[in-house]
Design a protein around this nucleic acid. Sequence first.
RNA 1: GGAGAGGUGGCCGAGUGGUUUAAGGCGAUGGUCUUGAAAACCAUUGUACGGUCUUCCGUACCGCAGGUUCGAAUCCUGUCCUCUCCGCCA
Length: 474
Amino acid sequence: MLNIALIREKPDWVKEEIKKLNDEAALNRIDCIVELDAQRRETRTRIETAQAARNKLNRAMGKLRGNKGMADEEKANRAQLAAAALGVRDYDRASRLMDGSEPAIHDEHVELTAAFDELIRELRIMGDEIDEGFERIAAIEGELRENMLWIPNLPHSSVPVSDSEEANVAHQPVGTFREFDFKPKPHWELGPALDIIDFERGVKLSGSRYYLLKGWGARLQRALISFFLDQARTNGYTELYTPYIVHSEMLYGSAQFPKFQDTVYGIADEDKFLLPTAEVAITNMHRDEILEESDLPLNYVAHTPCFRSEKASAGRDVRGIKRVHQFEKVEMYKLTTPETSYDELEVMTRQAENICALLDIPYRRLEIVTGDLGFSATKKYDIEMWSPGCAEWLEVSSCSNTEAFQARRAMLRYYPSGTRKSRYLHTLNGSGLATPRVIIAILENNQQADGSVVIPEVLRKYVGGADAIKADGS
RNA sequence: GGAGAGGUGGCCGAGUGGUUUAAGGCGAUGGUCUUGAAAACCAUUGUACGGUCUUCCGUACCGCAGGUUCGAAUCCUGUCCUCUCCGCCA
């Protein structure tokens, strides 16, 4: 979520920024937000002042009714006078009469019960008005929040401005592109030939975009996950094992909801969902907490399966395991101070790149333009591995700074050293890395003329020293 | 899944529907005292939002959401979570 004060103070500037993001619908909400915010504050001030008077009167009522030292005669008289004062909305006088701080002139006999009934009637009228006011506030705030939840994060000033993902700035590729003396095959041929990816049976079990890894396929994936986690640990990340099913609030916290509600899988009859990424669990881990600056940065890493419905990309990338409903990912995550988050983004991105380098697969960094930033990032780098079989760059990591966008939604705060005034912290996330696409890249880059696949050096210690996957299964 | 007991501030823990502050303690912070520390004593104490916004004022928050009432931590309903016992289970 954006800071509402920013929209209040610089609505035109915010609109200009949103224009860079290709989000027409969000743009149209800004005027509405400004209006609702003004209404909200005006109504709140008015109703809360009335509520203050009401609280005071109710306390005075208790004092009057429970005052053992006061004769019924005087109580009745005060109640009657207070009711009259309430009738002309003189709340101060009414409360002084009730709590005894203003003398009451006793001029006529008043019946106690009748006087209190009259007073309670006046208080009820006042209370009903205020209750209506609070209902109005709740309605306004609900509508305001609903609008705010649909406003994307604003781009960092260093992000190239463009609406087209074609314009993403590709850095110089790193690594050696292998020269093949045969035509490299795509993984959807290599996998079945080696009997390590079984598409038919995956589909039999669960439908399209599901697959089954078998033998070396499953083993290679497990090796990769261990390797990724060990790399992250070496880089100072604390490993987490998180729930894979979370409450819907968590998806609001990490900003998948409400906009991307149809990209996740829900649990029947429960308000819970399968993780589309570990980011959701980690973002909300410190929800509603206030950390100390000395705790930061917090670096976490978690391996989880990721479940995605991929409704938006129906029909695209249906071949192979490039885009699937279930995959394994190792996610790096940082909670930092606002001062350090951009430096940390560079650090995290280099760490992701380093994993590609260690696997000895050619890769490149993409600097994502404003129009392709997504909903929550202020700045984002993608890392792509080259896959000679399908002859394309495959996104294997995406590293983002969301600044305080998720922190504001999930209430992630910290006390700067020496103060007790909390601030929102910054959050960053980056894959490090995701398996099915890395498996694709390894199969396609390391395939040999005889159909075998060489196992990257760094993975061998995870597979008992084996150096190749052969068609005969050895 | 069944039965029961509970959810109160950073922590522990009181709290007959009212008579202006959620008692008291612990912890933390500041101060007094001290050569320094401890002890003792004094003071302070959360979050969010709003107000002519650093120290002032107000509103809301006693798991969460509703309800009853002039007034709810307290009464009612629902819900989530925790604990104990039983059942099941890796």
